[in-house]
């Protein structure tokens, strides 16, 4: 399972969201667990969307001396 914390990358969020979708689609998982998963998934999707919308591109030009 992908662990999510405050520093998680976009890739990690997507990995967790994919896990959640898979578990929700598994007929074996209980209704209670599914509701909790759904709530977690919605939060992560919001967070990922926010990351895409609010990111500001970082560009760094190395100088000769740094290389």
């Amino acid at each position: 399972m992908t662990e999510i914390n405050d520093n998680s990358t976009y890739e990690e969020l997507i990995a967790r969201i994919n896990e959640i979708v898979k578990q929700l689609e598994n007929p074996e998982s209980s209704l209670d667990a599914s509701v909790a998963l759904f709530e977690e998934g919605v939060k992560l999707i919001r967070r990922a969307n926010k990351m895409l919308e609010e990111a500001e591109q970082k560009v760094k030009f190395l100088t000769e001396s740094e290389t």
Binding site: Y10, M51, L52, A55, E56, Q57, K58, V59, K60, F61, L62, T63, E64, T67
Partner: peptide, 15 residues
């Protein structure tokens, strides 16, 4: 182009 498509990535330019 990279910034427009995926601003999450950081770019470092080696001269």
């Amino acid at each position: 182009i990279a910034g427009r498509r995926y601003p999450l990535c950081e770019i470092t330019v080696y001269p």
